[in-house]
Design a protein around this nucleic acid. Structure first.
Lengths: 157, 157
DNA sequence: TGGTCTGGATTTAGATTCCGAACTCTTTCA
DNA sequence: TGAAAGAGTTCGGAATCTAAATCCAGACCA
């Protein structure tokens, strides 16, 4: 996580994984099914059977992962009721889960570049009222882009 | 992946996972050990035993994951030679792997916010020559920030 | 030369998790 | 009364993970 394109050799990371917020985050979302659930949720999927049809994963795995995401606070379990049908639970993204959207979009764009085989991406993102594409990047406090080679990591203490 | 904070209900995602670049990306990096390997690599770790000591994962899992990452093109297997020691392989991030750095930084900052328990983050990121922190965001082609509520998803075709 | 060390990687055996299919439970519709 | 639909749980077999021991090749040492 330093600036140059060749990262200098290190024997260990400067922060032990067990008290690293990145490692903790990976502990929650670093899982194929979990990430696919979040992807679907960001597209508006909310119901058990819809997740199952979308992902094609075993129902037992799905119910386990949903429980983890609810416990972690990324999803909120609510109740919905279609008139004439009985009430059923639905899983909605909390603010915590919603705030992962930039990262998922970033992963999408990474895939467009490196795995897209030169084809135009099936989905892209624009600013409201504009047609030009936007992209994930880093900005300074004033909202101006910071190029990757200008990023510096600062350790506390 | 729409703009408002309440995502409208959908029964299915607009793009089937099997030809979605996000799903393909998840297929490569959507794994706990793989992400921890990339984290370590971005901190400069390159050697088998160093990865193993850093992650504490079974060596068999490590060699499997390294193979996957090399095959996928995120890591390049090179050879290093300490004088008086025999030549050994090292695993260096390729451009493809390096370009995941913004995403890992984004995940770090997400963890700082939601899992940090109010403590100041152990690592932060700044622009070279400055002391103020930077953050992950979206920018238009001119490098100006686009706020989350202004993001629109556009499907091709 | 032969023995030992060292870093990279595979083998092995047992525990865990995953998978797919079938089953349960409850409410509503016919 | 019966069938349907949605959200799970149960179950056995397959795949994967884990931990520890082992293999292997090239330096160094005597």
């Amino acid at each position: 996580m330093v600036a140059m394109s060749q990262i200098p050799l290190a024997r260990r990371s400067p922060i032990p994984p067990e008290n690293c917020n990145l490692a903790r985050t990976i502990g929650i979302v670093g899982d194929r099914w979990t990430l696919l659930i979040l992807r679907a949720a960001l597209y508006g999927v909310r119901r058990f059977d819809d997740f199952q049809a979308e992902l094609g994963c075993p129902r037992t795995v799905l119910s386990g992962r949903l429980k983890i995401l609810v416990d972690a606070g990324l999803l909120t379990k609510k109740t919905y009721k279609v008139p004439g049908k009985r009430a059923r639970p639905e899983y909605v993204l909390s603010a915590m889960g919603l705030s992962l959207r930039p990262i998922l979009i970033g992963l999408t764009q990474w895939g467009d570049i490196w795995l897209g085989a030169g084809e135009p991406p099936p989905i892209s993102f624009t600013k409201a009222g504009s047609k030009t594409a936007i992209r994930a990047a880093f900005v300074d406090p004033d909202g101006r882009e910071v190029r990757p080679d200008q990023i510096r990591a600062v350790l506390r203490g």
